[in-house]
Write a protein that binds this DNA or RNA. Structure first.
Lengths: 300, 300
DNA sequence: TAAAAATACTCCATAGGTATTTTAT
DNA sequence: ATAAAATACCTATGGAGTATTTTTA
């Protein structure tokens, strides 16, 4: 009869590569782990591990059992998370990943609010680009991710938080300053500064422009929105700035002219994501509501 | 710490509705089950069961844990199935469901072949309509289903076995007999006899016709292809007959005229389905190959 | 021959059984 | 009052520890 304990030990063995280290990781002794792995092999009637001078290597069957075992152990954890959420929601550790083009603008308002609302919640933040966040989320290193939708795959669920439009940022003396809005077509004649590759915001900005013709992209690619804004302020070109960055990046010193686009673009959709199998969906949905509120309050 | 044992007992309790019967189902005594359920509640810190004079009722949290627990137990079973398949493939019980418009034509050739190839395989057959087969498959009462693709949902995987074209069957003296093929458009002027509702073949036949105009459906709806053919032979109308039924239903006594359609229709696609989480995919894929072969041999 | 895993054996935690009490209607 | 579940208590299984042997490159 297969037990969770056996699956735990086998997956630890697959990760550690040898019995002694795996046993240490499980806080038991090597013979204890050996025995359970043997019992599992016996119970399944299949050899799962090849023992050699240089440690333990999974057989093909072993790999498959580890793969399935990991999923099962995750589901069991999800039950425990779910129960914890039922017992006392919004307590304990919560690992939230955010993309760099949201973090600096939303978190300064969000974190104090969350700490006030849920004093027992221990928020661990991690700022990375979409790809890495999704990997971390899928592999259980994160509980939540805050990023721009949509994301592919049906193993993740999301709540839409708000829409974040693009504004045009230009140097103060720029012709764009003369009108109340900037025509989308006018961007084609400008040197457009964007973020470096890997930022989803870069692709979204390009998508907005490409709707209206070729992009005359500047030679420099910024590593952050803050840098990008500095480049614009220095007269190197113009850029598309997400609305949520306006308050912090625009400043009040007149070094930047900011105008809305005509016609108004739909902008990027910001969402909160979690694993479909997560046990804390109810909490996450409530959190999504709070984040929406904080963002709305921020704009007023 | 949650254990599989505790999940098993809790799901048994949810199904039985009271502790004594649940315990009996688990082949243990009532106190043993009571203890484990209590330990689970204690471990999760959540009340899962409401105890009353009339037995046990799950709380909302209990329902959720049962739901998740069932999935976990299924996955554990899948590991065991997978291992069994590794150890000695094609042995033991295999529950195969087939739709009635495939079974009678494929199984008479398939069953002896499978028995010869895999003498240790114990095939249990079940003939039902698509909807019921899919339910049974999803709920684990079947291991495999043999039916017409596509089917909705990503919880099932399939292998395409072969294409099964439609032929036109008419009474011997019918004008259709004069030509080598029947024009699809000509069907609109005929009384078209079809199976009763619920048979996917009925919908597929209607789809083929609807490509080329309205259907003049006869008043009778047959409960099986065999009946349908009898009705056609009696001169009540014409029908669309799947190619795989030809050999058995056409007979050689000249009571039926069978002609291909022009233009040739793609026909229905026959596939073998299993749960995505099944542990015996390798065997199932090999079985799919065998079925394809048997069908191909049947046509020659 | 040296590192790694398996075996031998002992101990203790825990699952399960029997008898009985408590609870709920 | 009575069926149902919980509790008390005992037993047996099995998981883990220590010491040691066997395996393998």
């Amino acid at each position: 009869m297969v037990s969770l304990r056996q699956l735990r030990y086998l997956t630890a063995l697959a990760e550690a590569g040898n019995f002694r280290r795996a046993a240490a990781a499980c806080h038991i002794t090597q013979p204890a782990l050996s025995t359970q792995v043997q019992l599992l092999e016996e119970g399944l009637g299949v050899s799962l591990v090849e023992r050699g001078r240089r440690g333990a290597v999974m057989t093909a069957a072993g790999e498959e059992v580890v793969r399935r075992g990991r999923a099962i152990l995750e589901d069991v954890e999800a039950i425990e998370d779910y129960a914890r959420g039922m017992r006392d929601p919004f307590t304990g550790p919560l690992r939230l990943g955010v993309i760099p083009t949201i973090g600096p603008y939303l978190l300064p308002d969000l974190m104090p609010d969350l700490n006030r609302r849920y004093p027992a919640l221990q928020l661990f933040m991690r700022e990375e680009q979409t790809e890495r966040l999704l990997d971390s989320l899928r592999e259980g290193r994160l509980d939540l991710a805050l990023l721009a939708l949509p994301v592919p795959g049906d193993d993740l669920e999301s709540a839409v938080l708000f829409e974040d439009r693009f504004l045009v940022a230009a140097p103060p003396g720029h012709p764009f300053a003369k009108a109340d809005t900037v025509d989308l077509g006018a961007l084609a004649d400008e040197s457009l500064l964007l973020l470096e590759d890997g930022h989803c915001l870069r692709d979204q900005a390009l998508a907005v422009c490409a709707l209206d013709g070729p992009v005359n992209e500047g030679d420099f690619r910024a590593t952050s929105l803050a840098t990008l804004v500095q480049m614009v302020a220095s007269g190197l070109g113009v850029t598309l700035l997400p609305e949520m960055a306006r308050r912090r990046e625009a400043g009040t010193d007149g070094r930047l002219t900011i105008r809305p686009l005509t016609p108004p673009e739909p902008g990027r959709q910001i969402g909160l994501l979690w694993r479909r199998t997560s046990g804390r969906k109810a909490e996450f949905r409530e959190l999504a509501g709070v984040i929406s509120e904080v963002h709305a309050a921020q704009l007023t």
